[in-house]
């Protein structure tokens, strides 16, 4: 069933645009060009984080940390492979994308850990970065409970990712 969603959404967007007299080809290509700029914008961060994370993994540090925290992870139902992703997620979007991709590549995109990593990426965002952008823009000095509430949401997303994958994709 899920395989129908994306093609249907695309078809609907295109037909609706056509019905409203939008120059589809021009709109699509100009949007894609903007997308290319997004790619260029994120590439340096992705490169930096992937090199750093690959180095840390090669040194054995991540295995050590995962082994140390594995009882806690088991309690939360989170595969140990996903721990680095959970730790990095609130700090860096491109970093999380890099680590998530590395987990999926190593364990396979259809493995439990690979799926949990994908769901984690899909259901959480870069809390520290988002808060920094908004408070810098508004010149807010004190965001009070915002960070705590955002981290509660992140934690809920991590725990739920493990649960949801087991529950819905068992």
């Amino acid at each position: 069933m899920t395989s129908f969603i994306v093609p249907s959404v695309i078809l609907f967007i295109l037909l609706y645009g056509l019905g409203k007299g939008v120059d589809l080809y021009a709109a699509l290509t100009s949007g894609m060009k903007a997308g290319l700029r997004v790619c260029a914008d994120i590439f340096p961060a992705v490169l930096t984080m992937l090199v750093a994370v690959t180095m840390v993994r090669a040194s054995g540090a991540i295995d050590l940390l995962s082994a140390f925290l594995s009882p806690l992870l088991e309690l939360l139902g989170m595969p140990a492979e996903c721990l680095p992703l959970a730790l990095l997620r609130p700090f860096s979007g491109s970093g999380a994308l890099s680590v998530g991709s590395e987990v999926m590549a190593r364990t396979g995109p259809d493995s439990l850990a690979g799926r949990v990593a994908a769901v984690m990426l899909g259901s959480s965002d870069t809390s520290f970065y988002t808060i920094a952008v908004y408070s810098a823009y508004l010149g807010l000095k004190d965001t009070r409970y915002t960070l705590k509430a955002a981290l509660c949401a992140d934690l809920a997303a991590f725990v739920m990712s493990g649960l949801a994958v087991r529950l819905l994709m068992g």
Partner: peptide, 18 residues
């Protein structure tokens, strides 16, 4: 895209908790 239902569930819970 077979992760969609799991992402929806997880997203919904996380937003509600936040």
């Amino acid at each position: 895209y077979d992760i969609l239902p799991a992402v929806w569930l997880s997203s919904a819970v996380s937003v509600t908790v936040g």
